[in-house]
Amino acid sequence: MVTRLDPKTFDATAEITWCAGCGDFAILKALKLALADLGIEPYQVLVVSGIGCGSKLPDYMTINGYMTIHGRPLPVATAAKLANPELHVIVTNGDGDSYGIGGNHFVQTCRRNPNITQIVENNQIYGLTKGQYSPTSDKGFVTTTSPDGAIELAFNPMAIAVAAGATFVARAFAGEPKHMAQLIAEGMNHRGYALIDVLQPCVTFNRVNTYDWYRKRIYHLEDEAYDPTDREAAWAKAHEWEERIPLGILYRLEGFPTYEDQVATLEGGSPVSRLLELARNPRPEQYERLKDEFT
């Protein structure tokens, strides 16, 4: 029986410096709602972020927060999960941090399958640095660094995640916080790596992919006879863009072993649980052995 918490449990006092109307507000709200619905206390959560507008999020919540250098939250989150598998580890970062600077970590995390949840604040632009095109900017997208339009094809996180072996791949829209909160909760309940890519309008620097632009294109996979366990169907849905953009769980594979499950060193307990045990019953020879094992 889960005891639902008040989402205000996660409120913090730091001044929020996002632009008025930024989609990140909805992501912050949805994450609080999901944690509250799951009955997870602040001390049980670690939110790891990188650099960017969206990566300020841990500052705006009462949880354990860790802001890493640019593009590196996934390996830090994986390490935290290995050290303490009982911790709910969440990554929040933008499309540039995740798919650009941290692109390799993204692919490796998909195939490693650590039991962590990643929420990508995908606004298709670098907002904090005032509007350069990002990996997910559409081809032809005009910005200060692409005055003649972006030359490259946009990075497709859904397709890459499915191809690289991610076991939970979902897409949400910042304009629908309730639906987003449900997806975050499902992602956290999934045992393994869960990617939730959130289409999040940058109201200041992206004047193409606005709330209205998305509203005209999005639809919900839950409203169709769609089977998220069908990998080929997920591959097809991952390539839908422009005319119709699917929201919901594109792909889900349950029962696949997590990275932590397969790390032999953890069979005798996680470093944190063993240290806690040692703290309760101090024995110097055990401490030295543990130190040798993990250094």
Partner: peptide, 22 residues
């Protein structure tokens, strides 16, 4: 309607139309 649609989301629809750097 989404019960969690708040004033920030409402503003988001309007801010997108303002021709300024923000």
């Amino acid at each position: 309607p989404d019960p969690f649609f708040d004033s920030q989301l409402f503003l988001g629809w309007v801010v997108s139309s303002i021709d300024a750097t923000g």
